[in-house]
Every structure is written in structure tokens, then in C-alpha cells.
Nucleic acid binder design. Structure first.
Lengths: 213, 213
DNA sequence: AGCGGCGTATTAACGACGTTAACTTAACGC
DNA sequence: GCGTTAAGTTAACGTCGTTAATACGCCGCT
């Protein structure tokens, strides 16, 4: 249980001392993240709900985040940094670049299914919301994509993948992984075969199609 | 311009005669669809906005649709029926089953990019909303998927595709197409290469990976 | 001719949301 | 002591989806 101790509304929490105002910020992020991980969807994670979980009134959040999108974005950025780290770690274990890509693929889907709400907010939200702000900064997602391009380029350099543009090939692989992850998250009522079968097949088809010959 | 004539709030529209109450229903659907096609996102298509476009007060909509999700679902169902028809038509032109799959793939992405809000609501919304209701009925999307499975099975029967389970192979192809479509819609700020290049590469990689050998 | 009933809508309202403005409270430097 | 300032609250606005109660007007019936 990563959820912080809940707070009874009868003891409305002491105000933070003078210079320590910034301490509230991570608590807000933790509370929002805990709710998302607990299965709450984006709508359920309201400013009022987050505020109550932290033991504070809603306007207090606005001292630390410009609006709700910025709060959710920051929650996702934190997780996506770990997302990137995990995928890089998964690929580093293999000497063969194609095997490395396969391990990365499995790590990608596994992460998405482990943090479905984070994944949804960052990737399935669409323009106008979180996405615009994520574009303005560097973005952990951007960094992860560049790492993927590098991994594909390694396969090209080793003469294992067809020598197309590495970025286009990386987008192709990304599309397949994102597509599978997004479908599994968005349509849980579909009669999916076992996830391991799907991941294996998608990775297999994709990597075979990307290989030389 | 598919948008119906706008309505000045000064002439609040005549009430429909006795047996003709059902005539309001398609007008509501048309208004909502026109807004979505006009670039409005799901949030902007509010019950109040739809009501005003039709020239009616918001509660009048509830005589014809249980809630907002049901209205949006029905809008999408109508478009997805055409989605299915267009893809089937695209695949019917080719004798070769692999070529047929390629043409279907191009039609899929093209349709998604032409109707991004419909696509988002039906596929990127996630559980709890439209998705649950879509699952309860047959669903035009389900039908389209079964047609895709049949097209893949045709390739297997012609010894052109590897003889895995047709459904798993179809999901793999679907994942790639959905992934590309969803990414293009959700992250417009990304420095995408030309769409035709992406579609061609994704389809090529996917079909090569699905083929025999 | 009058009248009940029902189909078609409206007006009014509830609760929840994101967000802003104005105010309070308390600790610090001088 | 006293203004300044950080940290938070109370109150409110406008929006949303949705529901309850009500009005309007045509139909068939006696």
C-alpha cells in the first residue's frame, strides 16, 4: 500500500511553518498518484478529492500547480521517468540488438498495463490537455522515444535490421506496442487471448518485419 | 457543410406534432456529429450545446437518450458502420489477400485521421464510459474486427500468412494500425514524418512479419 | 362542446466540478 | 511592537450532467 495515511476531517491538519511551504507539493503529487494507482480514473481524481486526501482546501493546490492538467502532467512525468529507466534496463541485459528490442517491447507493455491511468493521461488524452504542456518541456516520453530510436539504430548498425530511417522504424515499433497497450487498457471487455501470447506475437511479427532480407 | 441551419434563440423552434416525437432524435445525433466533425472535443460537445444547436432545452434530449454516453455512443456507432463499410470496400478491390490487407490498413488509418473525435471517443475513452455500453450491444467495431479476422484467415488459407491463430494475428495487425492512428491523433505536436511514409512502413513491416517463411 | 389523458417539451433546481478573489492567520526581520 | 509576507481559508462564479415538477396542446371520447 503506497497510499499515505488518510486524514480525518475533524483534525484539519496543521499549517506548515514559514519556509516549508514547498513540502506540500510532493504530498499533493503523492496523493494524486496514489488515487490513480488505486484505480481511480482521471475524472475521479478531482482537485477537491486530492485536496481532501492531503488535508487541505482546494485552492491551496493552486499555490503549487497552475491547474489540474499541470498537476496530472507532473504525476505522469515522474512515472514516465521510471518507465524510461525500466525499459532501458530491460534492453541492457541482452547483447543481441534484436533481443534487446524484444525485451524492451515486453517491458513497454508490462509497464503500461501496470500503470494504466498514467498511461492513459499521457498518451490517450489528446491535444489541448496534458499533451500541449508535455510538448513544451522536454518530456520524459520524448526521452524514452529517443532511446528507442537509438536501440533501433543499433540494430541497423549491426546489419540486423533493414536500413530504413531509424526513426520511421522506431515509430513503427512504437505504434505496435502502443496500440496493443492502448487497446488492452481501453477495451477490457474484449475477449482478449492471454496477454503474454499477444505481447509475444506482436513483438515477433514486428521484429521479423523489421529485420533484413 | 454538413452542419444544420443554426437557430436564433429568439425563435425557439416549434414543438413537434403529436406522433412525430422521434423526429427529434436524428436531429440531436446530427447536431452532435456535426460538432465533433467540426473539431470540437468531447468536452465541448455538452448536452447544453447540443440542445442549443437543435433549438431545444437540455432535458428534451433525455427523452431520446439515457445520458450523454449513450448519445455519443450512437453517434460513433453510425460512423463506425461506415468505417466498416469503407474498409471492406477497400479490401474487396484486390485479388491477392496480402494486398487486400494492405489496402485495408491504409483505409483504417485514413478513416481514423478523418474522424479523429469519433475515433477517440470509441477507442481511447477507456472503461466505465462509452466502452461498457458498446460491449453490451453487438457494436459496429466488433463487426469490423470480425471482418479483419476473416481477411487474415483468407491469407492463411491461401498459404500466404504464417499459420498462427488468425485472431491473434489480426490483433497484431490491429494493434499496429490502432497504435499509429492513436498516436497521430493524440500527439499532434510530435515531429511526425509524412503520414503516407508512416502508413506504408507500418503496413509493410507488419505484413512482412505476418507472412510465411 | 367539453373533457380527460398523454406526448412534447420547459422551467427550476441539485450537486459536483475547476477556478478565482478576497480575506485570515501566524511567523519572521527590524 | 509592527509592518511584511508566506500559507491557507472562506465564499463565490460559471460550467457541467442530470432529475423533478410543471406547462402546453393535440387526440379521442362521451
Amino acid at each position: 500500500m503506497t497510499a499515505p495515511a488518510e486524514r480525518s476531517p475533524s483534525s484539519p491538519r496543521a499549517r506548515l511553518p514559514r519556509g516549508q511551504g514547498e513540502l506540500l507539493r510532493p504530498q499533493i503529487l503523492d496523493a494524486a498518484e496514489a488515487m490513480l494507482l488505486g484505480g481511480a480514473d482521471e475524472h475521479a481524481v478531482s482537485m477537491r478529492a486530492v485536496a481532501e486526501a492531503v488535508g487541505v482546501t482546494p485552492p491551496a493546490i493552486y499555490r503549487h500547480f497552475a491547474d489540474k492538467d499541470e498537476l496530472l502532467l507532473e504525476v505522469c512525468e515522474r512515472r514516465f521517468t521510471e518507465f524510461d529507466v525500466q525499459i532501458e534496463a530491460a534492453g541492457a541485459d541482452a547483447g543481441d540488438p534484436v533481443t534487446a528490442l524484444r525485451l524492451r517491447a515486453e517491458a513497454y507493455v508490462r509497464f503500461g498495463l501496470t500503470h494504466p491511468e498514467h498511461y492513459r493521461i499521457l498518451f490517450l488524452k489528446g491535444p489541448g490537455g496534458v499533451e500541449r504542456r508535455a510538448a513544451e518541456r522536454g518530456g520524459a516520453g520524448r526521452r524514452a522515444f529517443e532511446h528507442l530510436v537509438a536501440a533501433v539504430q543499433a540494430g541497423i548498425d549491426a546489419d540486423r535490421l533493414r536500413s530504413d530511417d531509424a526513426m520511421v522504424l522506431a515509430i513503427s515499433l512504437w505504434s505496435a506496442l502502443h496500440g496493443l497497450t492502448a487497446l488492452l487498457i481501453s477495451i477490457p471487455s474484449f475477449p482478449w487471448p492471454p496477454v503474454e501470447t499477444l505481447v509475444a506475437t506482436v513483438a515477433d511479427v514486428q521484429l521479423r518485419g523489421m529485420q533484413r532480407g
